[in-house]
Design a binder for these strands. Structure first.
Lengths: 182, 182
DNA sequence: GCTAATAGTTAGCCTGTCTAAATATATTCT
DNA sequence: AGAATATATTTAGACAGGCTAACTATTAGC
């Protein structure tokens, strides 16, 4: 039972079906692989985790035509305004972003990505995203339904964790803003 | 196409099938939820990320009857021996671990978890793990095969990312150990 | 028994976070 | 309009956790 297959392809062999624990192991392996991949990207760009997240957020916002303020970064990243101020200093110093006057509020600083940062990130994370889309594209409808069911279950498992009983309470999910930041 | 359903259950509605982008969104949601959950656990125990990973590693090793040395922590966590030394100081100070003389090598210090740390972690991460096992247990064989196929594809997407062409070139891959640590 | 290798500790530095206080601009009330 | 208050950012100072380099204790090789 639950034979561990380092890089097996269950679906095409036909004889051994993955068990629950195998799926959880795959989830863990994915998490590790993704973490390594992000670390490599980050490393190759000489950035830390937070700055990388900030840059991704900035690029996403920019693609939607929005010019975020520093305040928005603080909320998105869960760090203080003061820390964001220094973070944006770093992004500007390294040529990834620029401060502009915010059109609607002169108290605020609008942040825009440079062309350089866009191409830099596209070369890595964007390519990964496309590869994932291609990979998932080969699944049948039934398979996609199964995967969705699985992921929903996983999300529920880690979300309701605080209140295992009392299904009708409807609350008890760990809320981001309520976390003790230290 | 690709209707975003915040918390929909595709499989039981019957009419709308999740598309590739929906699955990737689910993956992202899961990652976020898990990150929040771990952050909450960590916060409730007053620990930082690295110390938490160290404690999980220690408990896993202990359950298998192994007494790891500080050296093993350095390798597992990817931090320096010096940092591990201080890390173990913290774990001991807060009552999660104890230093013992290593039976086979008197240069080494064996690390063992306290009973306290085991129960403390069991109350959170262990419960999550059980919930996940239960959830996955409801999937059919076909569904498990589909999920395995999906996860394998995801892993490949983020793993090969560095070298899409020229499998024999052997160059250009960012190797984990070669990362500039800053 | 020397010498080299290995495990851990300590000291000093650097980065990234925080809070508190300062500054500039917006908004609201009278 | 003018005052009071609220909001956005910056700066200063402190702290935590990572690093390297130098040091001690033990083990292994010759």
């Amino acid at each position: 039972m639950s034979s561990y297959q380092a890089s097996g392809y269950w679906y095409s062999e036909g004889d051994s079906v993955p068990e629950a624990v195998d799926l959880l192991n795959l989830m863990r392996r994915y998490r590790e692989a993704e973490r390594r991949m992000r670390a490599a990207t980050r490393g190759s760009m000489g950035m830390n985790e937070t700055d990388m997240s900030a840059l991704r957020f900035l690029l996403a916002a920019h693609r939607e035509g929005v010019t975020p303020r520093q305040r928005d970064f603080a909320e998105e990243l869960g760090i203080s305004n003061a820390s964001v101020s220094v973070l944006i200093d770093r992004l500007c110093r390294d040529g990834y972003a620029e401060r502009v006057v915010h059109p609607a509020d002169r108290r605020s600083v609008g942040i825009v990505p440079t062309d350089y940062s866009d191409t830099e990130v596209r070369g890595t994370l964007h390519r990964m995203h496309e590869q994932m889309m291609d990979a998932v594209g080969t699944l049948s409808e039934d398979e996609r339904v199964a995967v969705a069911k699985f992921l929903e279950a996983m999300i529920r498992s880690v979300e309701i964790d605080d209140e295992p009983r009392q299904p009708s309470a409807g609350k008890g999910a760990v809320r981001e803003s309520a976390l003790p930041s230290r």
